[in-house]
């Protein structure tokens, strides 16, 4: 479904991604691991077209989308749920969600889609008229996911959904991710919380990044086999 081939991405003159390649297949959950600053978020941004790579190719559903504008990628079924959440604070919860479905208003039944996300996030339904900026951190994260989800994307790129959240909320988010996965969503996930991620499903694949390169990759089982190296890459004891 998505194939990233040897991309090099720069921020100004600093070289962030040094030839990253990865693949995501339909219905799969693919996780990017790595320490802070190794280029996980940049990889997502490169795919999305926010920070296009200088060279290399990004193939999505057989089409070269390298450097294409984000809004066009979204219309082709990509969605990004950014790490800093980026709720529009001066819009209500409802408007934030509407914004997410605007580009598919003609293809989808809007009220059905609203019901669908409220089914996932019943808390949001209680807050529809509230401004996005007035939500708690956890609620904002839920709204971010809901906003990405509402247009039925084919591939969701979720960037550190549990960052900075209380343990109870983290578990709630994890449960949502499991549910999404069970419903066959294709997810490219960036997450620091290794244990939580591994617990999402046995049926996932992970890439471990170091200094802008893919160091290791494989299923949870395969990664367990080289736990030392993983620990070294992530700088934590597992």
């Amino acid at each position: 479904m998505l194939k990233v081939e040897n991309i090099n991405t720069y921020y100004g003159s600093s070289h962030i991604l040094h030839g990253v390649s990865l693949e995501v297949h339909p219905g799969e959950v693919v996780v990017l691991f790595g320490r802070n600053g190794v280029g996980k978020t940049t990889t997502l941004k490169s795919i999305m077209g926010i920070q296009p790579p200088k060279n290399g190719r990004i193939i999505y559903k057989g089409e070269d989308i390298t450097g294409r504008a984000p809004y066009l990628n979204v219309r082709k079924g990509l969605a990004i749920i950014p790490e800093d959440r980026r709720i529009i604070p001066n819009l209500t919860v409802e408007e934030n969600l509407q914004l997410g479905i605007l580009h598919k208003k003609k293809q989808l039944n809007v009220s059905e889609q609203f019901d669908m996300v409220f089914d996932y996030f019943p808390k949001l339904k209680l807050r529809v008229k509230q401004l996005g900026g007035s939500l708690s951190g956890g609620e904002q994260q839920m709204l971010t996911i809901a906003r990405g989800l509402i247009s039925n994307p084919e591939l969701m790129m979720i960037d550190e959904p549990t960052e900075g959240l209380a343990p109870l909320i983290v578990e709630e988010i994890a449960e949502i991710l499991r549910r999404l996965q069970r419903h066959g969503a294709t997810i490219l996930l960036v997450e620091q919380n290794y244990d939580l991620t591994i617990s999402l499903s046995e049926n996932l694949r992970a890439y471990v990044l170091e200094k802008g390169q893919v160091k290791l990759s494989g299923t949870p089982a395969e990664l367990r086999a080289c736990q030392d190296e993983v620990e070294q890459c992530l700088g934590v004891k597992l």
Binding site: M48, I50, A69, P70, Y71, V74, R75, I80, P82, R86, I88, P89, N90, L91, E95, Q98, L99, G100, L102, H103, K104, R147, S151
Partner: peptide, 22 residues
């Protein structure tokens, strides 16, 4: 909708772009 987009883009144009809006 366009008013809503303008209000949103006033705060975060990149995110609006990332929601499929030109």
């Amino acid at each position: 909708s366009i008013g809503m987009i303008i209000r949103a883009a006033t705060r975060d144009r990149l995110m609006v772009n990332c929601l499929g809006i030109n």
